[in-house]
Amino acid sequence: MGGLQVPLEHVQVLAALLFSCGLLGLMLRRNIIFMLMSLEVMLNSAALAFVAAGAKWAEADGQVIFLLILSVAAAEISVGLGLVLQIQRRFKTLDMDSANRLRG
């Protein structure tokens, strides 16, 4: 398979853009499901940056980190969705602005 010869920074800029999108979503969306999606996007962008960096030096480390990020995302989403179910049961809403019982 032939290699890709785009500048590395283009890939990294794409990763940064995706990360920014995720961050923006996290800050803007009030629905917890969308917040979790934003988190997925952010993790994914980080994984893209790692894979690209691994490809630059033709090392396997980038993909190893990708695998770790994958497992983190899987664990996070399983717990997060469990929480979503509980929040829906308790507050009858997924709006995180109304579920603010931790107010100091």
Binding site: M27, M96, R103
Partner: peptide, 18 residues
């Protein structure tokens, strides 16, 4: 002052973290 920062709103926490 610090207590008033703890609103219990997830988005506020996210924003401040950013």
């Amino acid at each position: 002052g610090l207590v008033s920062l703890q609103t219990g709103e997830l988005r506020w926490y996210a924003t401040t973290m950013v």
